[in-house]
Computed example of a mutant assay.
Amino acid sequence: MSLALVAGEPSGDMLAARLLSGLRPHLPQARFHGIGGPKMIEQGLESHWPMDQLTVRGLLPVLLRYRELKGIQNQLRDQLLAERPAAFIGADYPGFNLGLEEQLKAAGIPTVHYIGPQIWAWRGGRIKKIQRAVSHMLVVFPFEEEIYRKAGVPVSYVGHPLAELIPLTPDVVAARRQLGLAEDASVVTIMPGSRMSEIKYNTVAFMQAAKLLLQRDRTLRFVAPMAGERQKQYFLQLVAQAGLQDIEIQLLDGQSHTAIAAADAVMVASGTASLEVALFKKPMVIAYRMMELEWQILRHFGYQPWIGLPNILAREFLVPELLQHDANPQALADAMWKQLSDAPHRERLVQRFTDMHHSLLRNSAAESAAAVLKVIERTK
């Protein structure tokens, strides 16, 4: 038996790796192949292309690389149609995976999509394509189950893997020791994003905000986890070009969870990282900047007032969100200062984020694997 999987970025790599860890005991002789990152490869995936070739975010960057991405999709489609795996599993990355799933499902190959596209946030019309493309949807937030069920898409809520990976009570002292930080230091973690486009548009504003924060408290320590060497060098280049290299900041190779655990507060680009910060029970400011033309297009597509996952799950502005022009250095610094200095607010956040953590906690490896096994069994 073979199963095909595709992840296009680190968050999908993590999701699919958890699923593979649940499937392997049940399918010890199965061949798992497709496109994935280091975590999937550790679980035995044979990756036909480097996952980095797919990692691109944003409307215009995708358009610029459309022919390349479409070529990879077509090659993989032809390979899978000839092979006919027991199932195809798309891990997030809907722009690529849903198109591939639609073609495979039409040819009779069952398809599973792991982590429902955020049709509740924007692009609700995508549900029609999902109906055509997906044999079974796996969702990571409780409220999503009803949305897909109403649309007639078979669905399973499997919990969020991050809720299992992150402890309910983070060990701040251990994290600081690991990073060589004093236990009583005031620590701000800066997370401008893992993608090159995010680093490009967020880095300078984040670091200028750090400079303003230092004017209020010279004892602040700054830490920034980097997704890879390429991202680290680009970050340093942007900092130097902006004349901000005099700001002392500890750059880490990975170790994002350690950096969050060690923090008093986090300045974070919107995305999965903001949920990680919430699960670590940390105050935060969520921010996001992008190419101006892209912002003018996308700003009209949202269905709700929040973009940060913690706020979406809470259905209120638990933490500040600053987007595009509002994500300027002074606004970022002011919002971060409140997160650092408002003790009652920090205590409220710990309780709200703890409740959120419990709501997302399941054995995601076992439950997602069980759903995939049922899909396979129905097609035997």
Rank of each mutant, 00 (worst) to 15 (best):
L238Y: 00
H345S: 09
V56A: 03
H160F: 05
R289S: 02
I119G: 08
S194P: 02
G8Y: 05
L59N: 11
G308P: 03
K150P: 08
K129G: 09
L214H: 10
P192Y: 01
K281P: 09
V223G: 12
E377G: 07
R195C: 00
L98H: 06
R230V: 04
W122Y: 07
E102D: 11
P225I: 05
Y114W: 12
G308L: 02
V319Y: 10
E276Q: 11
S186M: 08
L373E: 07
R230F: 00
K39T: 07
M207F: 12
G308Q: 04
E68C: 03
M356D: 01
S2D: 05
M336D: 13
L27W: 05
P192C: 01
L69Y: 09
E146C: 13
Q208S: 13
L236F: 00
F317Q: 12
E164C: 09
T379G: 15
L20H: 06
R84E: 08
R378G: 12
A265E: 04
A151G: 09
L373Y: 10
E367D: 07
V187L: 00
L64N: 12
S197N: 03
I307K: 10
A366W: 13
Q304S: 10
I286T: 04
R177L: 13
E164S: 10
A365Q: 14
L313G: 10
V187D: 03
D217T: 08
L59I: 15
Y114H: 14
E68K: 09
W49T: 08
A370M: 10
V112P: 08
W337N: 11
A7H: 02
R18G: 15
D342Y: 01
A262Q: 05
P283Q: 02
R132W: 07
L20K: 00
Q29R: 15
P225A: 12
K150L: 09
R84M: 04
P320H: 10
D184V: 00
